[in-house]
Amino acid sequence: MSLTLRPEVRATDTADGMVLLDEVTGRYWQLNRTAALVLRSLVGGAGPPDAARALRAAYPRLTAERAADDAASITRALAEARLVVPA
């Protein structure tokens, strides 16, 4: 399941990850490098399992189970915050 940012959400890369701004509500979210990597994977057409593999590639000490849990958790948090929708 790939995702896309909602039309009113803007993303800006930062030195430590990414910032998302909902232009309608004025709320913003700061993502660390891990969450930013997962989001980039998801909006690039990957699903959560692919995002988990990207995490493992970026952080080789991360176990497959932890990477899958992190990718799923980040995906769920982005959806619950209404920042993303299915692509």
Rank of each mutant, 00 (worst) to 15 (best):
M1T: 08
S2Y: 07
L3G: 01
P7S: 14
E8Y: 02
V9H: 00
A11G: 01
T12Q: 13
T12Y: 03
T12K: 07
D13E: 14
D13G: 15
D13I: 03
T14K: 09
T14F: 07
A15T: 12
D16W: 03
D16L: 12
D16V: 07
D16G: 07
G17R: 06
L20I: 07
L20P: 07
L20C: 05
L21T: 14
D22A: 01
E23V: 14
V24M: 11
V24C: 04
T25L: 02
T25Q: 03
G26Q: 01
R27F: 12
R27D: 09
Y28N: 14
Q30D: 10
L31T: 04
L31N: 10
L31W: 06
L31V: 07
N32D: 15
N32T: 11
T34L: 05
T34Q: 13
T34H: 03
A35F: 01
A35N: 00
A35H: 00
A36K: 09
L37T: 15
V38L: 10
R40S: 06
R40G: 10
L42G: 03
L42E: 11
L42N: 10
L42M: 04
G44K: 08
G45H: 04
G45Q: 04
G47Q: 10
G47E: 13
G47A: 15
G47F: 07
P48L: 01
P48A: 15
P49H: 08
D50Q: 14
A52Y: 04
A52R: 01
R53Q: 13
A54M: 11
A54N: 07
A54G: 04
A54Q: 12
L55P: 03
L55M: 09
R56M: 12
R56T: 11
R56F: 01
A57I: 15
A57F: 11
A58G: 10
A58N: 09
Y59Q: 15
Y59I: 10
R61W: 08
R61D: 15
R61L: 14
L62M: 15
T63S: 15
A64I: 05
E65G: 10
E65M: 07
R66C: 00
R66K: 14
A67T: 05
A67H: 06
A68Y: 00
D70R: 12
A71Q: 07
A72D: 12
S73Q: 11
S73V: 00
S73G: 10
I74P: 02
I74V: 14
T75D: 08
A77S: 12
L78A: 05
L78T: 07
A79S: 11
E80R: 10
E80L: 02
A81H: 02
R82T: 08
R82I: 04
R82A: 13
L83I: 03
L83K: 00
V84R: 02
V84H: 03
V85R: 11
V85T: 14
V85H: 11
V85W: 04
P86A: 04
A87M: 02
A87K: 09
A87Y: 08
